[in-house]
Design a protein around this nucleic acid. Sequence first.
DNA 1: CTTGAATGCGTTACCGGTAACGCAATAGAC
DNA 2: GTCTATTGCGTTACCGGTAACGCATTCAAG
Lengths: 337, 337
Amino acid sequence: MSRDSRSRINLAEVASAAGVSKMTASRVLRNASGFSEATRERVMREVERLGYVPNRIAATFSSEQTSTIIGVSVPYLSSSLFGAVLDATNHALAKFGYQTMIGAHENRAETEETWVRNILSWRPAGLILSAHMHSRATRDLIGQHGIPVAEIWNLNTSPFDLSIGFNHHDCGFEMGQYVLSRGHRRIGYVGADAEAPGLGAVRRQGFEAALATASLSLHAVEILNDRSGFYAGFYGTETILNRNPGLRCIYYQDDAMAIGGYYYCKSRGMDVPGDIGIAGWGSMEAASVLPQRLTTTIVSTEALGRTAAVALIKRIRGEPVDDVTITATRLAPGATV
Amino acid sequence: MSRDSRSRINLAEVASAAGVSKMTASRVLRNASGFSEATRERVMREVERLGYVPNRIAATFSSEQTSTIIGVSVPYLSSSLFGAVLDATNHALAKFGYQTMIGAHENRAETEETWVRNILSWRPAGLILSAHMHSRATRDLIGQHGIPVAEIWNLNTSPFDLSIGFNHHDCGFEMGQYVLSRGHRRIGYVGADAEAPGLGAVRRQGFEAALATASLSLHAVEILNDRSGFYAGFYGTETILNRNPGLRCIYYQDDAMAIGGYYYCKSRGMDVPGDIGIAGWGSMEAASVLPQRLTTTIVSTEALGRTAAVALIKRIRGEPVDDVTITATRLAPGATV
DNA sequence: CTTGAATGCGTTACCGGTAACGCAATAGAC
DNA sequence: GTCTATTGCGTTACCGGTAACGCATTCAAG
């Protein structure tokens, strides 16, 4: 491993090898104007021959702009919903020459704050923050730097800058209406993540608002401290049904939990939706192999991520862009309610 | 949005406000030696008051070292197995002051090469590459820069530097032995991702090696072009069983596919494991809610990610570290074989 | 033939930190 | 009281690019 030869080749060496000035070599590499075709070829030949890799640290530093780094923060990296968001943003950002620096805030404001502080020291071109409330210090830091920010997932009531998300309230309201239309009355809710902001609470409120139109309220609510997941849904359902044997329908924070709940009910010999109705959110892939089509809300986390990345880039470039974008969702009736 | 005031505050301003030289302020902030407690307090007060955020671009540039960036490349960001790896590496790296720059190579050597080229322009302190073969150009680039690299997931036969992974061959072999011990004979294999290197092929080979000890070979193999997932398993099972009605056991690329296969079999009224045995790999959470315990191999992708991150940091710091680390796996007999 | 603009390239001066070195003041050893 | 080591801090010179500017040369228009 040739530690010494590490990146000894810099622009000056490429330039002198090509018999031009540093500046001309720089122009060629940035594809700026001001050089002849013959010069371009000479420079590029030396770039190839010497294996020159541009130093973006130096480039960013010299032009004293922000870097081409975009910070992206999600609750967890191991989450199928946010994983798809990450894939979509990363893909879109890379296409426009930006690099993604990730963070996992784990639904804690302090974790997010530490990450923001760190990432700002890289002078990023923009930030994508998701599904979280920000600490006072976080808001101050970001405001101070005057950097474009896209907040995604939930539609923030007082966004920094751009807001791209699902209308969780409507998702919940719509599902509430549907559940009522199917004749259910004693209805419960099972969530997780201790109701971290944006991860279910707003949908639950929308759901309750729909119930209220029929003068009903949630018969039972079970919010686990664990992370959302299949087993959390299984266990949460066991708990809520033990405490409320009369429950006839459960709205879940997401499909993973709904699927877990579905199998709990099946394991107890219950009929779905005869004995109990089950509704999820998120159109997660795991639902595709259930014996019955899961009643859920279809969302496209890919579309969300892509839209957010494109909007942020437009903002960075100073192009016009909507401050608020609602990503479409659609209720899938399914067969479990 | 105060674009103009963006990061006007630099070390020089902090220093002059505190009545010291830039260098002294720098020493305080880096916690280097050579300043008195009184000076430290004066500097830190101004840092607080002015809201100074260090400029890591400039710091990295000046000291002409590599940055504190670590590049991490995985097949997809939306993958429960690799998501957990990302979470673990990111967490461990952040704790030691490194930032993660991610890439998704999508199982294509050219995509990885493009990413490597890009990331090297940030002069990263190290790279974590996963589950992939590298192009000649990729190998050259990395060799040229002489940068520490950890290759994870599979145990590479000719690693750059560090190799941390599961012993996929043994996983397959062990499962093959177990399946045989349960009396199965006409055995098939269902995979996906067009057998991208490291994502299943080696396990399949190990499995076949075990069958060979009983003078058996795979009765049928179905490799889909799609990405692995629940529905891929469902569909792959439908395909392989239609073509090979006599199949009595299927080994799957991973648990998601095994679960999909399980539900396909159930949907056809088959008894598991009476009519057909089902074995997966990866101890994915979704299996926790199946009516039967899935026969699978328990792996810890978190441990893999953490180990890789720690090993890479040790290498970067020049501390002694094993070139090859095998992350433990364990066969879980379950009840589906 | 002159003139103005365009083209192709070099020079200079930075960007915001840090390594290396130097030097005064102080403290402890003899 | 002198001598040396240590402490605390400032000065200088960069790191590798790029913006801004300047200056020849070329070429078409008048």
